[in-house]
Design a protein around this nucleic acid. Structure first.
Lengths: 208, 208
DNA sequence: GTCTATATCTAGATAGAC
DNA sequence: GTCTATCTAGATATAGAC
């Protein structure tokens, strides 16, 4: 009759090792997708990069898209965390400060690995699961931003719903401009984006 | 000895027919790519949609990417034409009018077939030829915009180069927001975008 | 649990009849 | 010039030894 303690002891290391392998696969996939793009980012290459066999890879992920989905989910989660971090500070901040925090968070989240982000955003076939995940994340951001704009005293804009979507979609700009062949300087991009958003949102309403 | 007239007469119809077939293929490809995406937009499907055989298709285009490249080139040309059209009016216009013309041209160029545009921009593997073509077109626009901003008396912006790139990259926003599952109303998008750009570019410089 | 070897599948592209 | 039939390549995914 086996000692339960030893069972637990043996199980822990196994799961820890497995988790480590998953991380290795994800890291390898991130590298391979960034380097070769989606189509040429084959499972064989990923396995090779992770220094495991193709057979082992399929022990951890059922298929190629599952790997990519997890990479996307990670990115979205990272973005959501930045969002939530801002949600805490309830003291009244200037709109410019809020926009700067937003823009900076987005830029930081992209500077990490622009090429991977580009592949994820631009070359990945839109599987329903993926669309669902992205849409939900985006809707969260739009809702949050809409509320923020609605409440903030400095905001003067005619169409607040459209404005919220515009602000959120700024992420696309960052995305494109950071991953560009001759990428913009991150600091300049931040300053100009903040200026654009702030002036847009706070412009005095036209007199009639 | 054959009559030159008849030769010319026979050649003309042949070329006209061939040109027509090329158009059929392009139209079919546009439809198929928009419907199925890049990867699932197979040459077989394109041929089927064009009501010709796969063998015939390869008489007109050497490979799948050549077809796509031509579709992209068409889109870029359409954009360039709008740009040039604006270039003619030399009389001083308000910046808002200029921005509105720009935004409207971009939106129009996207409303045509948003889903095809989305596929072209987001799912197409970046072949070197394609990158070259796109980069050149974009650089043209940035240069043109930079000059325009530099000359226009209403413009007050700290970093004019970054501003020009920001303005041009607005196209990405349109692209995304028009092709979105729940697309924004084109008119509202236009108004808000114009407001954003105009306020950004014309804001009074901060006093120091 | 990891590997090698391989089956399967499908797309792009071509050959050759007509 | 158009077609059908087919080849080739390569990627995903699996089988089965160890």
């Amino acid at each position: 009759m086996p000692d339960p303690q030893s069972l637990r002891a043996r199980k822990q290391p196994r799961q820890a090792r497995a988790e480590l392998t998953r991380q290795r696969i994800l890291a390898a996939a991130a590298h391979v997708f960034a380097e070769h793009g989606y189509a040429a980012g084959t499972t064989n290459r990923i396995a090779e990069q992770a220094r495991i066999s193709i057979g082992s890879l399929y022990q951890y992920y059922p298929n190629k898209d599952a790997i990519l989905l997890e990479l996307v989910a990670r990115h979205l989660d990272a973005g959501a965390v930045s969002l939530k971090a801002r949600q805490n500070g309830d003291q009244p901040e200037s709109l410019e400060a809020i926009m700067r925090a937003f823009v900076r968070a987005v830029i930081d989240n992209h500077l990490d690995d622009p090429r991977l982000l580009q592949v994820m955003a631009e070359q990945t076939p839109r599987a329903p699961e993926l669309i669902e995940r992205i849409t939900r994340s985006e809707q969260d951001q739009v809702d949050f931003t809409r509320d923020l704009l609605a409440r903030h005293p400095e905001v003067h804009v005619t169409d607040i719903d459209t404005a919220a979507r515009l602000v959120v979609s700024t992420e696309q700009l960052v995305h494109q401009l950071v991953a560009a062949p001759r990428a913009l300087d991150a600091r300049r991009l931040e300053d100009e984006l903040v200026a654009m958003l702030t002036r847009y949102l706070t412009a005095a309403p036209a007199p009639d």
